[in-house]
Amino acid sequence: MIKSTFSRRSVLGAGTGLALALALTACGGNVAGNSAPSDGSKFPSGPVTLTIGAAPGGSTDLIGRALAENASAGLGAPIPVVNKPGANGALATKEVGGAKADGQTLVILNASLFAITPLAVSADEAVKIEDYEVITGISQDDYVLVTNAGSGLKTMEQLTKAGKKFNFATTGVGTGSQLAQALLFKQAGIDGTDVPFDGGAPAMTALLGNQVDVATIQLAEAMPQIKAGKLNPVVVFSKERNQYLADTPTAIEAGYDVPVSQFRAVAAPKGTPEPVLEKLRAAFKTAFASEAYKAFNKQNLFTAAENDGAQVAKDWAADAAKFKELAQKYDVDLGGGK
């Protein structure tokens, strides 16, 4: 497949007849690749494509677009966003991993793809963080365990004492929502049935309609219903309390070893020259500092997690190991069946 490596286009607003003539001279094709010097002095040599392994509209897409918009000025090149959904992002991630390591093609990484999905799918579908140059962490998106307000259940203590079997809704197989709940219920000794839904919205609808007893969904999705008093937040699964839901304890505070959050980072193919990475890092730093980007985070209830790339890679690898250990220890199988 062809990467958009080089093209200058779309400054043409003139009449169409004229535009064609201009287009032929002003537009570079994107078929033939051109080689870039490895010292990064020529970087960026055209638009830097940011690949997103999710469909437009989801939180990964929103984050990618907000970042691209605010970083392109600092980089001195446009950052077009290309959505390539497929296999929870594995498709796009693998594709960028095999792209030319010149910094012109980047990808947004989801931590769950490296740390949680491998627990649910076969080994050859899994992706490894070592195969990427992580430029910088972006942000953290927290999961919250909610119950229907009508049930009156507000704390973990009430849940454990309820003495009944719970149907818990997850946002899908191999997601943080599933892992967090499965671990929590096993540790708390609650008898639960894992009911996977296709994303957060249907899981929440099922909870609101009392089709299931509890659900774990991403904070931004649950917040409107929590504020409206229709859902009770029980615990959040982040390591520390979430700034947007400061009154809700973490699972760890409630006494359960379940630290699960969705982290995101931006990465380039392995072997991208250090000077290029440096330029990219600086551009994203400027973006993080901009008011527009901060407002975006606040509006979507994301917590900044703008750690250094090397640290991110280390953290995610550690998370992957920890989840694997926890899953074995508590005999949690995300593959549902078996």
Partner: peptide, 8 residues
């Protein structure tokens, strides 16, 4: 500006 492969 569709990123379709194009020559020109």
């Amino acid at each position: 500006s569709v990123p379709i492969p194009h020559l020109f």
